[in-house]
Amino acid sequence: MHHAPDPSKDNNLDDLPPPQPVHYAEQALLGALLLDPHRLADIGPLEPGQFSNHAHGALYAAMRTVPAPDPDTHRTTPAWLNTVLDAARPQAPGLTATYLHNLIQVCPWPKHAPAYARMVRADHARRMLRLHAERLAQTSMDATLPNPATATMAQADTLGQFLETLSSQFAPHPGSLPRTQPPQAPPRNVGEEVLGEERALLATAVAHPAELQDMRWLQSEDFALPLHAALWQCLTSLVHRGEPVDPITVLWEAQHRHLLADGLAPSDLMALVSTPVGSPEYWGEKVLQRALLARAHAVASRITAYTEDPANTPHQLITGSRRALADLTSLRTRWQHTTTATAPPTAGRTPRTPAVTRAGPPPPSTAPAARAIR
């Protein structure tokens, strides 16, 4: 057989972390196939790209490309191994004849090749699920997108479709919930732009309280700042009880909810809800969109945490990820209800057509400055 320098002699490899269990599964699988090439027909669907090690994938691809040898000839000559090595080297120059022999030697039982292949598929599923979750997180945080909510929901759909594909590949079994402790949701962005939009919503809602009847798609949990969420509850409670709404009545309601207990001055609270700009629905959609993106990022972080725990089986990953995505569903439904022209109308509300736009803020030169209350 051909010989080449053994890459394992490179001193830099001493600094590498120890191999993961899938590395040994890949070695055992390749060793079984090198020893008994006919087992390629027994391992089920497996692609070269599903190997975690590029050289392993290249070697597997070469095995599938090179015609299988005669069994009797293969037992007495290394000709087929040489052919496989020559076919794999253009994609993996570091492969050596010695490494192929090592693969054969480290395979415990060649007849267990189907089990080794399942391990390779399972680890690939975990890595791909993590990749989809990371893409969802990145999309939800990409401020350069022209329509971030639409792009984020499209990425969530892609992740959901991938989970459907995985569920058809891995049979369910009892005890399918991940045991990984989910991470806390990432903190919401409370930058000045975010707070300014929420202040504008509260002020315009005080100026136009009747419109709150048609804004049940917005909830207090959608606000980034707890104070603003509590003030929204004050407003919706006043409207629900049919009481007058103005800065004074909002202040009185806020006092009953202990919102003034943390040092918030009554005059500051009234000033916060006294500078209307545009319409409540315009600002409400902005608040809801930010809540949608924040929830998508939290869901992505949760799924990523599941995939980073190698103790989770593929079905545990599928079940846990589906439940995480379900946390996005209700908020997404509210978002679609208010932003799509085909959303079913609620009582007393006419569906919005694409030609109708929300009333936004006036030009910057005439917009009143919002007070910085946090």
Rank of each mutant, 00 (worst) to 15 (best):
P183V: 12
S220R: 09
D309P: 06
L81Y: 03
R371Q: 13
A58V: 06
P172K: 07
D15G: 08
S52F: 12
R216Q: 03
A122Y: 05
G57H: 07
P183M: 11
R241F: 05
T180N: 04
W80M: 04
Q50T: 01
R188T: 13
E193F: 11
R257E: 06
A151W: 04
D15Q: 14
A296P: 02
M119V: 02
A203T: 05
T307Y: 03
Q20M: 09
L85E: 12
Q289D: 08
G360C: 05
G175N: 12
P37F: 05
P172H: 08
L131M: 06
L16A: 15
L16H: 13
R334Q: 09
Q91I: 04
T340N: 13
W109D: 15
V356F: 09
F162P: 04
V120K: 03
P344M: 02
A324W: 01
P247I: 11
L272R: 05
A133H: 07
E308M: 10
P37S: 13
M153P: 00
L103C: 07
A41V: 14
E26G: 10
W283T: 02
E285D: 06
G196L: 01
Q27W: 03
I104C: 14
A324D: 00
Y306V: 00
T77F: 07
A97R: 06
R322H: 13
V84S: 09
H124A: 10
Q316P: 11
D70T: 07
G348M: 11
H74Q: 04
A298G: 09
M63D: 07
V250M: 12
T346S: 15
Q105G: 03
A200G: 02
P172A: 10
Q169K: 12
P344Y: 07
L95D: 05
L331A: 02
G191R: 02
P344E: 12
T319D: 15
Q213A: 11
P266S: 09
L235F: 10
N53E: 14
